[in-house]
């Protein structure tokens, strides 16, 4: 009657080894086609998020810390999040028919993310209900 522990092992193997809840925000300002300001902010959440989270991207990476991952794969992470949703604001001013300044501001408002590190993959899930949009 001794049950083999395979079921237990399979259950633990399927669970994410490391997981965490984070807030992420991003702001970029480009003036006259050149980047003037850029800031990516990541903060660990103090309480566990609840809600409906949907996977938005998955990256192969051996890292188990989101901050390190974001530092090394900043470009990929931003492309994934920008694809999900981005707020755009742009101004352009012409005086006496001459262009004075062109400003584009891209912003990802503070967004709730669940990050799982599982079997060499970093899985990023986003809260679509309260994702800042």
């Amino acid at each position: 009657m001794v049950r083999p522990p395979f079921a237990l092992i399979a259950l633990f193997a399927s669970l994410p080894v490391f997981a965490g809840d984070f807030y992420l925000s991003y702001h970029l300002v480009a003036r006259d086609h050149a980047v003037a300001y850029e800031k990516l902010s990541i903060s660990a959440a103090m309480t566990t998020f609840s809600g409906h989270f949907i996977e938005i991207c998955r990256f192969p990476s051996p890292q188990t810390r989101f901050q390190t991952f974001a530092k090394n794969h900043r470009k990929d992470l931003l492309e994934c999040l920008q694809k999900s949703a981005i707020w755009l604001r742009s101004y352009e001013t012409y005086t006496n028919l001459l262009r004075q300044r062109d400003t584009v501001s891209l912003r990802i408002p503070p967004t709730r993310l669940k990050v799982d590190f599982n079997e060499g993959f970093v899985i990023i899930k986003r809260d679509l209900e309260r994702g800042g949009d």
């Binding site: 694809k83 755009l88 604001r89 742009s90 352009e92 001013t93 028919l97």
Partner: peptide, 18 residues
């Protein structure tokens, strides 16, 4: 003496592909 034109765009864009 001065003519100014100012343009402004406000949008949220989703699922843009490079």
């Amino acid at each position: 003496s001065r003519s100014t034109v100012r343009t402004q765009i406000n949008a949220i864009i989703r699922n843009a592909k490079i």
